[in-house]
Design a binder for these strands. Structure first.
Length: 263
DNA sequence: ATGGTCGGTGTCCGA
């Protein structure tokens, strides 16, 4: 089974390159974040024509929004974590073998890393705390669970281009990385990118739009993640960060993260 | 130390 996660920052604007990804990489399941599209405007037909018959979406006007597109049938869940807001940041489906797949878009958190003065940062921390509690309550580590998405946190020293320079920058601050570590403990999750890429090797999935020469300066961050519960770790077969997609026409600032399983 | 660019929407907000 091939699974891809990608923050595409508008599904309507990005439709041509999403179809290109499907054509090139032929995933069984594609999880999208930041679709920025109300459900009634979601381009179902284009994805169904590409072979992705099974679609679960949760979108809204202008912001946020998620989609799971699949060749494999699934049962859509009606669980959504909103954490005090009307945001669309969490959807889930159950696969035929019972594996539960969660697609997450954790809040970015604004600029100021102080929950006292910045509501968006407070919301981000609360969101991670709530997901941590919920995963621990909902599951035990022997169950098959996958969590993917744009977590908007680069947890490790080598998940950012400069650990020292980003310690005070939202996405890599200790309150965020400590909370994400707790969330990782909620189900003894395996961080799939670090399962395949050594801990001391730089690894990024996002490069800012503000840096035109993103490839040369390479000031990236690893904000996108695939986590699996322990029983699925032995099924992992491969992993690719499709950095080339950052140079596709009208690119997203995130690139696809591809994971292969033998199930 | 600062500002740099996107997308959706509506003349700004969120990333």
């Amino acid at each position: 089974m091939r699974l891809i996660t990608w923050n595409i920052n508008s599904v309507r604007l990005r439709l041509p390159i999403v179809l290109r990804l499907l054509e090139q990489k032929q995933p069984d399941i594609l999880c999208l974040q930041e679709t920025k599209c109300p459900d009634e405007h979601f381009p179902h037909e284009a994805f169904q024509a590409a072979g992705y018959e099974h679609i679960h979406i949760h979108g809204m006007k202008s912001y946020n929004g998620l989609a799971i597109l699949s060749k494999i049938p699934f049962e859509a869940s009606d669980i959504y974590h909103r954490v005090g807001r009307q945001d669309c940041r969490h959807i889930a489906v159950t696969l035929p073998d019972g594996t539960e797949l969660h697609n997450l878009y954790i809040p970015a958190g604004g600029d100021e890393p102080d929950p006292e003065v910045n509501d968006k940062f407070a919301h981000k921390l609360n969101f991670v705390d709530e997901m941590t509690r919920w995963f621990a309550d909902q599951y035990t580590p022997d169950q098959k669970v996958i969590a993917v998405g744009d977590f908007n946190i680069a947890p490790g020293e080598h998940d950012v281009w400069s650990h020292k320079q980003l310690l005070g920058v939202v996405s890599h601050t200790p309150p965020e990385t400590e909370r994400l570590a707790k969330m990782k403990g909620s189900l003894d999750w395996v961080d799939v990118s670090r399962h395949f890429v050594p801990e001391d090797e730089k690894c990024y999935t996002w490069w800012s739009y503000r840096n035109k020469d993103w490839e040369k300066s390479n000031r990236g961050r690893r904000l996108d993640h695939v986590w699996v519960s322990p029983p699925l770790a032995e099924a992992l077969r491969g992993h690719e960060i499709l950095t080339a997609a950052r140079n596709w026409e009208k690119p997203s600032d995130h690139v696809p993260l591809i994971v292969d399983f033998k199930l």
